[in-house]
Design a protein around this nucleic acid. Structure first.
Lengths: 199, 199
DNA sequence: TGTACATCAGTGAACGCGCGTTCACTGATGTAC
DNA sequence: TGTACATCAGTGAACGCGCGTTCACTGATGTAC
């Protein structure tokens, strides 16, 4: 019985493991809404409309729950970047779209993004989204859009720059607005253009 | 009486306010050593070799203590970047040195750096270190080393890239090592060269 | 078709812990006489 | 020079809180007979 939680029907028999996904979603919603990247097991349980001990049927402890949140978040980031790339046929446009999607994820879910990259070890899905950028730059080189001589190294430069933009907090983004000629998508496109050596 | 704290002599009469600086230093040491950016008032007091209530003579509450830590950290960052710039006469070299110093600060004090830029509002000293970069790029343009047409906008690009490098966590830095031809200082110099449009 | 029961999803109470903060205090020391 | 005392730096005990985790349990429900 809690003010912030909705009344929840217990899962039907055999579907008890559904709670696992519900809990991960609750944790994600909590982080995204509060902007606080520290999750408490009790808080997540409250949000999911379930008692705290219930979580122990699905996660050994709080650390395992946060790991699940991170894995799910990296997957989401990778998917959103992948979607952006797929939406474009021209490789240079695909690269710009990838960068924009990456930054957008960081801005839309800033606490979560911070949590993802504050972790001591990245999930393989972190590497996956970098690899997507790298292969898009490869495509640019092949199509003649980029004159990069070391696409993988340049992909790293691009990724670092996108990471820098993604972790920009609000005051920095306000500076950005005051910059005049270069607006937000222009900023990231210009960085990409110079770092990926687009023509 | 605590295991982790040294025995501390009380400050002489009239020098009671010295504890304020001692506490800030203790907090900084704690964050840098543990790599944990959340400080507890009791933990800091322990580290300073003093009882928890003692801090209330110098800080109204925990938030005010963290604010003091942030202010001191931004000052340190600004000073270190400033020193790096002063150490070079050639503007292009000064810019490279500034970038390297900035990144080094982030890597040497990763938890603290994270805390500094996770805060909702930056201190004026955050802006100060950006301004230093901007004026160095101005100098590059004047000396003919940069062909930037909008030095302030390009300074922003450079700052974002440095910020991206500074927030790179260990796994990302390991990737960096595997990159081959480009080592760490080469990476940041190359980013600066392309973003600040150096010749 | 009816019913006993094993299984399953989930709970309530309790634990010890470290936290931020308040409060009334203690004891050393510089100063006034 | 000696001493009383105000001032100052700092303390110990206590508070209520939310936390992670453990434990013995409850009550609904699909299934076997």
């Amino acid at each position: 019985m809690n003010a912030t939680s909705t009344i929840r029907k217990r899962n039907p028999r055999g579907r008890g493991s559904d709670l696992r996904e519900e809990v991960i979603s609750a944790a994600i919603a909590l982080i995204d809404e509060t902007g606080d990247s520290t999750v408490s097991l009790r808080g997540v349980a409250r949000r999911a409309g379930v008692s705290a001990p219930s979580l122990y049927a699905h996660f050994a402890n709080l650390a395992e729950l946060t790991d699940a949140v991170l894995a799910s978040s990296f997957e989401q980031l990778r998917d959103e970047v992948h979607e952006a790339i797929k939406s474009q046929t021209d490789p240079a446009r695909a690269l710009a779209a990838a960068g924009a999607a990456y930054i957008q994820f960081g801005w839309d879910h800033r606490a979560r993004y911070r949590l993802m990259f504050a972790a001591s070890g990245y999930s393989p899905d972190a590497v996956a989204s970098f690899t997507l950028v790298a292969s898009t730059i490869d495509a640019c080189v092949k199509s003649g859009a980029s004159e990069s001589v070391d696409p993988r190294a340049d992909a790293f430069l691009v990724w670092v720059a996108m990471h820098g933009m993604a972790t920009l907090e609000k005051p920095g983004r306000d500076d950005l607005r005051r910059l005049g000629p270069l607006d937000r998508p222009a900023i990231s496109q210009e960085m990409i253009r110079r770092l990926a050596r687009l023509r």
